[in-house]
Each structure stands twice: as structure tokens, then as C-alpha cells.
Amino acid sequence: MPKIECHNLTKVFWIRNQSFEAIKDLNFEVDSGELVAVVGKTGCGKSTTLNVLLGLERPTHGRLAIDGKEPYKDFDFFRGKLSAVFQTDRLLPWRTVLQNATYGLEILHFPQQERVKKARYWLEKVGLTHFENAYPHELSGGMRQRVGIARAFSIDPEVLLCDEAFGHLDEVTARQLRDDFLNLIRETKKTSVFITHDIDEALELGERVLVLGKPARLLMNVQVPPATKENPTKQAEIKSRIIQAIESDGTRKE
């Protein structure tokens, strides 16, 4: 059975008496331990899909389930099972680096000693050992995002969801962070969904890439085997196919 099942998912928002479809009949599955990248144009409903996955938005129609349960309906079932790395770091400014990294563990009632131990382990993994007493405003954007990653991994979630996690960083920092992040994912074998608008990033990270149209629905489902990642020609070919699919979706609508 797949870990994540999304079946005919539709999400409609009402803005000043006008309906707006963010997701329309979206179907996909993610297996346990798989790293899937979701790519699509800005504003195509990727983040709404992530919010439904996190249980923060209720689907209008259809069903999205993780382990057979719906994140919105069975909200408390997912206590300690989900983690997220967001586009902005979302660190709490009054907490130090260590306190931010222990945030999830504190919510899950881990004893003080254990949460400090776990948080320190993950801070070391992301290379922030010497900064645990710093406040977020004292860190660079890349370092702050690293704290966000440590916070997400610290609770040892079953599913890790990322929303444009490196999108606001400069290319060099983003590349470094992406590599480190990928290593952590491979090491921990977490089921992960990585949402991005950057096709190169999607191809670099994902074992499989889901291409979304606007409103969010599945245009393409592309397998990216490791051999493809090392073959620039093959990668360029897939990229142009993805671009074509997204562009033709746009043209069709216009």
C-alpha cells in the first residue's frame, strides 16, 4: 500500500463570493521511503497541496490520505508523524537556535534531556554546533534554514514535506544546502515530498517528479533513476519535456 494516496483531490477557495480552484482532480501516490519532487509554475496550487498534506487545509472533494488516514480529519493521529521545512525558515525569534530545534520535541513532550540531546545531534548534522545559543536574527539566511531542517528532522517524522525550502537562498548556498539535505534524506530514508518551482532542483532531488498544471493536477509523472542524474543530456531532455508540458497546459487554458 502506498504511504501517501491522493485521489481526485480538489480544493476550491471562495474569495469575495468568487470561487477559485487551486487544486482540480489531483491524483498521485508516494511509496514509503520515496523522495518525490513536485514541480509546477508559481501559483499553480503547489503550496495548497502541501497544506492539505499537512492537514492545514480541508479538501473540497476527493481524498488525500497518509497511512490510510486523512491529515485534516484525523488531525491528532499525525502527532509526531509529520514535519515540514517551509520556504521561509519560520524560526521563532525569541528562541535560541537550540530552543528552536527542540520546539517540536517539546510539543511532543520529550523529556528535557532527551530533546536537547536529539536537537544537538541534528544541529551537528546541519553544521550548527557552535551556534546553539545564537538567536535567529544573528544568523545568515542559509544558517536559519539549516535550523529549520534540524527542527524538522529532530522529531524523526514518518513523512517530511518541503515547500520551496531553498527557493529564497542564493544559488551557491542553495546548492550546498540541497546536497546536505539530500544526504540526510538518504541516510534517514524518510518518505519525502519536495515542492519546488525549479525544474533543475526537482530533477536533482526527486527519485520521481510530479509535474503539476494550473490549477494543480497531474500533467506528468517522470521517473528519475540515478543514472539520469549523472547524464546531462538525458536530464536536459526530461527538462524540456517538462517545460513543454507546463507550457502547453498554459496555452490550452489561454
Binding site: 499537512l54 492537514g55 492545514l56 502527532r79 509526531g80 509529520l82 519560520r90 520546539y103 510539543i107
Partner: peptide, 20 residues
């Protein structure tokens, strides 16, 4: 944004109040 980040961990109402 902070509220969403917090809710992902599934806190109790008391925790949301005290910690956020």
C-alpha cells in the same frame, strides 16, 4: 506562518497558547 509551523507538530491548545 508560525501558527502553521506549530500546528504541523499537532500541539494541544494549551501548548499553542504557552509556546506561541
Amino acid at each position: 506562518e508560525w501558527m502553521e509551523m506549530t500546528l504541523v507538530f499537532r500541539p494541544t491548545r494549551g501548548q499553542v497558547f504557552r509556546m506561541l
